[in-house]
């Protein structure tokens, strides 16, 4: 139970960074903290006390294998997280080249 709550606290720390920072890099960092906490939460759900990794070998007790389904889904989510973070960072590079600053308060003249 306490690990779930700590996971939620990590999510809230990421949310705080996302909403109160004025620097694009810090906002990306806060977003990645939120992502990490969600991955960890999903994997925590599938854990069995004293469980084995989901790899079938000779003589393994099939009842004591941890749930492989959340692990497969989180694997997909991690790779998609990398893709979105690469997009965000390239946008940040573009914004720095145009405005000479990472400050989101100065980025007001956005137009097509």
């Amino acid at each position: 139970m306490i690990v779930f709550i700590l996971c939620f606290i990590l999510f809230l720390v990421g949310l705080f960074g996302l909403l109160t920072s004025r620097n694009i890099i810090k906002i990306i960092i806060g977003l990645s903290f939120m992502e990490f906490s969600v991955y960890l939460f999903l994997v925590l759900i599938g854990y069995i006390e004293g469980g084995q990794a989901p790899i079938v070998v000779e003589g393994i007790d099939i009842q004591m294998i941890v749930d492989p389904l959340p692990q497969a889904m989180v694997l997909t989510a991690i790779v998609i997280g990398l893709a979105t973070k690469a997009m965000l960072l390239s946008t940040a590079i573009r914004i720095y080249k145009k405005f000479r600053s990472f400050d989101i308060r100065k980025i007001r003249s956005l137009k097509g």
């Binding site: 991955y39 990794a53 790899i55 692990q71 989180v74 790779v79």
Partner: peptide, 14 residues
């Protein structure tokens, strides 16, 4: 620790 070696490998690389 949570017995997810595949995730650990992918997370290190990412």
């Amino acid at each position: 620790l949570l017995r997810a070696p595949d995730l650990a490998i992918v997370q290190i690389v990412v």
